[in-house]
């Protein structure tokens, strides 16, 4: 079976006046229908840009400079803008981190949702409206009829987020990239949304890429996890393996910072030092200046390796070797 999405050696760089920002630098992963891939990692490490690259939505001065993005075996980096537009929002959808990337502030919600339905389905306006209405109900927006007539600024942060989710779900995509989709939702509504996407994955075989900082959500939702740091994937594996026995020191540091793993009121554990600027990455391992296990070997570039079956990492001293 071909994967729904396979990304091979993707590099997306921004050519700014201050220098080249290597936002995504040699990223590879693949995901099958019905599977959930949790994409986590440092803020600014390239998660959203990875999503934009798959969607063909990287704005200049950024470009995909290398690599292949195979959707059902077809390299979509080579598609014309017209063919891409037919896929986008239809077979491949993205819930953006900022819901206002989906929503137009001067148009009513109904106008926007009806347009989104009719862009890819030959239905009447009334049918489109009723589909929009049902979609709002699905994401837990009460009084959908009245709310359809509102403007985005009349919605709370979480309601805007849910409208963006509803639009992404309209056409039951084969691939859904969800970028921090539930940060503005209370846990009961979040559970409602997560149950809807689980249904989507089961019913339509949708492959989900779930980008989030909430490791507890990922723990309950994802099959596989990929951890990003400074434009690279530094660890992959099943959710259980990555969360229970992380191999990469960055992953371990990240999990240690979760508030529930710290004592109330005390200082939270944080990874020492600051994220290196993507403009001036030190040679070798990008985590080197912050890593407790760094040594001379780490001045070379670590390549992905598989120290234990089913779990990969980019590190010269994966944690399994330390404890074994």
């Amino acid at each position: 079976m071909t994967a729904t999405l396979e990304v091979r050696n993707l590099r997306t760089h921004f050519f700014t006046r201050a220098g080249v920002v290597k936002a995504v630098d040699d990223v590879s992963f693949s995901i099958a229908g019905g599977q959930v891939l949790g994409l986590v990692g440092e803020s600014g490490s390239g998660k959203s840009v990875t999503g934009f690259s798959v969607m063909g939505l990287v704005d200049p001065p950024g470009h995909v400079v290398e690599g292949a993005i195979l959707y059902q075996g077809r390299d979509i980096t080579r598609l014309s803008e017209r063919d891409m537009r037919a896929l986008r929002g239809n077979r491949i959808a993205m819930i953006f981190q900022d819901p206002m990337m989906t929503l137009n502030p001067v148009l009513r919600i109904d106008t926007q949702m009806i347009e989104a339905v009719q862009a890819h389905a030959k239905v009447s306006r009334a049918q489109a409206r009723s589909r929009a209405r049902d979609a709002l109900g699905q994401v837990g927006i009460p009084s959908p009829d009245e709310r359809l007539a509102a403007y985005p600024h009349q919605f709370s942060g979480g309601m805007r987020q849910r409208v963006a989710i509803a639009i992404a779900l309209l056409h039951h995509p084969d691939l859904l990239i969800a970028d921090e989709p539930t940060t503005a939702l209370d846990v009961t509504i979040q559970a409602q949304i997560l149950s809807e996407v689980q249904k989507l994955a089961v019913t339509y075989g949708t492959a989900l890429i779930w980008i989030t900082h909430d490791l507890s959500v990922i723990a309950g939702l994802a099959d596989e996890i990929a951890v990003m740091y400074a434009g690279r994937i530094v660890e992959t594996g099943s959710a259980a393996r990555v969360l229970d026995t992380p191999l990469h020191p960055y992953t371990q540091g990240l999990i240690g910072s979760v508030p529930s793993r710290n004592r109330r009121g005390e200082k939270l554990r944080q990874i020492p030092g600051m994220t290196p600027s993507l403009l001036r990455l030190p040679p070798g391992c990008a985590f080197r200046t912050r890593c407790p296990h760094a040594d001379a070997a780490c001045e070379q570039e670590p390549e992905p390796s598989q120290p234990v079956p089913g779990q990969t990492t980019r590190c010269f001293h994966p944690l399994i070797a330390v404890s074994a």
Binding site: E42, S43, E180, H213, L215, L254, Q270
Partner: peptide
Amino acid sequence: VAALDVSIQAQ
């Protein structure tokens, strides 16, 4: 702090 990874969030 909703948009921050847990380590920067801790910071």
